[in-house]
Simulated scan of single mutants.
Amino acid sequence: MLVLLPPSEGKAGSGEGPRLDPGSLTLPELAPAREQVLAALTELCAGPEDVAMDVLGLTANQADALKRNLDAATAPTLRAAELYTGVLYERLGLPGLLDSPAAGRVRERVLVFSGLWGVVGPADRLPPYRLSMGVRLPPLGGLGAHWRRALAGPLGGLAEGRLLVDCRSAAYAAAFRPTGAAAGRTVAVRVLREREVGGTVERSVVSHMAKATRGDIARALLVEGVDADTPEELVAALRDLGHTAELAPAARAGAPRVMDVVVRD
């Protein structure tokens, strides 16, 4: 089983480890694609500040992100587990898991998607940076398409025969779209909020709460050592752990499945 995660916009501001070693990152065969993105990002951030801010979608109070990007090749690093600090990661608690009996499972089963690095493991050492997958980075163009080309072979091989639990947002899902048999082993996690309105039970898709719930789901799978082989086994395991999980019918044979996790007021 592989758990596919987005990064977080919130990131730690500094590290204390050695400078970046590209060859040490998960899927080292991605090094050429990573170097392309880092070189393009460095060139952008070294140019006119207003242009870089606009391309990267940054606000005036985020200008310090440009310097972090410029320093990425030489800055002190920290584990990806500590770098990403958003809501999903607060609930997931990766640093503690990497220092627990579940550490082996975490290293083997968790992949974090990144606009700069493509995909990384939780123990990979990274510098602070700011680059969303939704950016169109000159001269590479859309990063989703750039990484889709680069990731298809290496990540497709890593995912072979494994259930994919997809907790990514749409922008990061664009970087790797399982096909063929892998698509049939992919479960996208959707979070629904259920509440009673005027005597009627209604469900709606949520956003902020979804990040927290996906963090809870990923943590439960890792702590409990769940290693499901099929979408049906995944749903059954989560129900046994106290979650309300429902598997939607496949849109067509071999298509990814959607698993609804229901949270109630």
Rank of each mutant, 00 (worst) to 15 (best):
A228C: 07
G215T: 07
A237V: 11
M259Q: 09
A248P: 01
V235T: 13
V235C: 12
L221H: 06
T213K: 11
D240N: 12
L238E: 02
A251D: 14
R214P: 05
V197H: 01
V206D: 08
A248L: 13
V187N: 01
V226E: 04
A182G: 07
A237I: 05
G198T: 05
A174W: 00
E233R: 15
V205R: 08
G215P: 02
P231T: 04
G180N: 11
A212D: 09
F176G: 00
E233W: 13
L192K: 13
A218Q: 00
L234C: 05
A248M: 09
A251E: 15
T200K: 13
R219N: 10
V258P: 02
A183H: 12
R185E: 05
M259T: 10
M209W: 10
L192Q: 11
A175Y: 01
V187M: 00
A181V: 14
E202S: 09
I217H: 00
A182Y: 00
H243M: 14
P256A: 03
D260N: 13
V197M: 05
T213V: 15
G254C: 02
G180H: 07
G198R: 15
L247P: 03
P256C: 05
G199C: 08
R214V: 08
V261W: 14
V187W: 02
A236W: 10
L221S: 05
M209T: 12
R219G: 04
